[in-house]
């Protein structure tokens, strides 16, 4: 009887312990979930701001209130993403691991999990930029008349959402390059494609807006001046190669781990 009670107590202790702290390979789980929460608040906040002020202040770029409500937001966005890029990329570079040759298999496994979390947060930002706010742009163009490249949706989509996923993709690339031996010895082609390809979407804003100086309307969304964005997003398929690289290495590392219960 006593043995059974002890076993139950031990099980309960283990469960409680597991409930409080994630296992070692998910050490960054709470940071990962926090990143999702922060980004969700930001993006939904943008949408609420648009719902509140776009129709009342965002239809005429010559109106002084447009300057107050939208160009100030544009200036804030550009400043914020510039600072965020410098801080996040700088932190990842200056805190890099300079002793990768002595990395233990367990620690390397944990870092592969963290890399996957970085890429996952990157794809979450890709969702908001490539799905929600991208198609919302079509909706806005069909109820307003474009008189500026800085519309109520472009200011958020082109000058916050696009740079944000570029920054987070860069973070994933830098994390891999500075903390994982295989990515430090060679430059992963699929990771580079998956990060630098969608980066070209940001650059395509220039082509798109140049095209719209000839055709100010959005006659149809599938117009060729939008296809630069399309080609950029194809490179997201590089994630398949990252998955294969990660799985192959994880299998090797798991083989090096001793069996645990």
């Amino acid at each position: 009887m006593a043995t059974t009670t002890e076993k139950i107590s031990e099980q309960m202790r283990l469960i409680t312990q597991q409930g409080k702290m994630p296992p070692w390979y998910l050490k960054d789980l709470y940071r990962y979930l926090s990143a999702f929460a922060v980004l969700t608040v930001i993006y939904i906040g943008f949408r609420i701001y648009q719902g509140e002020f776009a129709v009342s202040t965002g239809l005429d770029s010559t109106d002084p209130v447009f300057e107050t409500y939208w160009m100030r937001l544009f200036n804030f966005n550009v400043t914020f993403v510039t600072l965020f890029a410098g801080l996040s990329w700088g932190y990842l570079w200056f805190s890099r691991d300079k002793n990768l040759d002595t990395l233990e298999p367990k620690e390397e496994i944990r870092r592969y999990f963290t890399l996957t979390m970085w890429i996952s947060v990157y794809t979450f930002a890709v969702y908001w930029a490539g799905s929600y706010f991208a198609e919302q742009d079509n909706s806005w163009h069909q109820v307003s008349v474009r008189d500026t490249p800085f519309t109520a949706n472009h200011i958020i989509e082109f000058y916050f959402n696009f740079p944000m996923y570029v920054i987070l993709g860069g973070c994933a690339w830098l994390y891999a390059r500075t903390r994982l031996p295989l990515y430090a010895k060679g430059i992963s082609l699929p990771l580079t494609l998956a990060v630098f390809g969608p980066f070209m979407i940001l650059v395509s804003v220039g082509f798109n807006e140049w095209g719209h100086t000839f055709w100010y309307r959005e006659e149809f969304f599938a117009a060729p001046i939008h296809w630069g964005f399309v080609i950029g997003v194809w490179f997201a398929h590089g994630v398949g190669g990252i998955l294969l690289q990660g799985v192959t290495r994880l299998i090797e590392l798991l083989d090096e781990l001793e069996e645990a219960a």
Partner: peptide, 10 residues
């Protein structure tokens, strides 16, 4: 796109 190549430089 699902290549597993590592490059020396980009």
């Amino acid at each position: 796109f699902a290549t597993t190549r590592y490059l020396k430089k980009i």
